[in-house]
Design a protein around this nucleic acid. Structure first.
Lengths: 231, 231
DNA sequence: CGGTCTGTTGAAAACGATCAATACGTGTGG
DNA sequence: CCACACGTATTGATCGTTTTCAACAGACCG
């Protein structure tokens, strides 16, 4: 089923990105013609909350946080996004969130109308978009369960398991965290102190170690799974 | 903009349901031909978590809870649904949630494939489906913020405001709650005791009163808004 | 009348938040 | 190269909210 294809040489399209899955070369070329490759430094906004929703992003390298801010200063990170992830497939008037890079980041930017118009011509692309929209909703439901039901330790373990699955280059031997403790806290509905203390307790239990504040090594994956999966 | 239309006499389609917005009579008839009107008693499942996702529901009367269960016995209610609400527009293999009626409930049941196939023929229907999918995602993002950032009192006030907007027949003078304290707790990431105590404190402040456990009267809407909106 | 389920209240405990101080790491300018 | 500043990470002490456990009240039903 996984048809092989040749991406246009000038494009940096990632074959692993689900938006491009199973598209033949000529369709990939049309997609590629729509995209503009962009680059931002650390802590820059790809888009701001409440700005007109006219673009769709596809992360190529780096990492970013999808965040919702309130004027009272509180922040909820809705998702972390990594290479291959798509942002902005819903069709709303305005972005309901801001997207901020956590490190120097490159991404493809599609005009939303153009992408949707093309998807009307290319059934494969439309199918990929549908599946991605459904995937985002499913992941968001998982997060609702996490925020509503899980305890701090379970949240942290789930978070580590998420990174293992989705962060490129992460293995149980070494997870290199692109986000700060505050970012993690705002993602999990905790405070940075609780994040730190929970990690410290997991370290004290021998479940993991932290050679540096930015890198986590999991030693007892079984434990992490049983704490994070909550089945 | 709101075109008037005549719904087929034999159909009970609600004009207020966004799925049917701006559809001409002949298209409504084709939709109606797809739907089967169903009826369930209280506490019955319209669909069960992990069962094949082959149907789409549209609540006509009653109320239901969209819930996710874990085998450890915990439960997160992802949403409450009321007349006019649509459930199951994502295209996944299986339902990621169960839908349980909170009272005797009637609903239209569409075959998922048939509905999507029809939407390929009717651009208006397709547009409505798109908008509904985006709306669900936006509401879910709101809920992520609520669960991650808001305190118990803010959660309760936001919940009351949600009911005022979405529960048919609700007014500030009287909200008739179709769900139990435990349902509310599982929706807001609290315990039933905390829900009760928070409501008791709001009552003690004179912000609201509760003539019976199932009915809430809001006396100080300004306060409820400033607590629930968190701006 | 007894049983069950939901709602309510109380007391105590636990978890996570808050406040405060300190350590660490990096980059800058002297 | 060192001194310093700044931001992040860490730790400690304390506080407060929410949870937990327990008991009881009320409604509904058999």
């Amino acid at each position: 089923m996984d048809r092989e294809f040749e991406a246009p040489a000038q494009s940096a399209f990632d074959r692993l990105c689900p938006l491009y899955r199973n598209l033949p070369a000529n369709e990939l070329a049309r997609l590629s013609a729509l995209a503009r490759l962009q680059r931002v430094a650390e802590q820059q906004y790809l888009c701001r909350q409440d700005s007109p929703h006219d673009r769709v992003f596809n992360l190529v390298t780096g990492a970013a946080a999808v965040e919702r801010l309130s004027s009272s200063g509180r922040r909820q990170i809705l998702a972390f996004v990594f290479p291959g992830d798509i942002i902005g497939l819903a069709n709303a008037d305005r972005f309901g969130y801001g997207v901020k890079s956590l490190m120097p980041t490159t991404f493809h930017e599609f005009p939303q109308r153009g992408l949707f118009a093309l998807s009307e011509e290319l059934p494969g692309l439309k199918s990929n978009i549908r599946q991605l929209q459904s995937l985002v909703l499913a992941l968001t439901f998982d997060q609702l369960y996490l925020l509503g039901q899980k305890k701090a330790q379970e949240k942290i373990c789930t978070f580590l398991l998420q990174l293992l699955e989705r962060l490129p280059g992460a293995s149980r031997d070494c997870i290199d965290l692109p986000m700060t403790r505050l970012d993690i806290a705002d993602y999990l509905g905790l405070t940075p102190e609780t994040v730190i203390r929970t990690l410290a307790r997991l370290r004290a239990s021998g479940i993991l170690s932290m050679p540096s504040p930015q890198s986590v090594c999991i030693h007892d994956m079984q434990q992490v799974r049983s704490l994070g999966d909550v089945h």
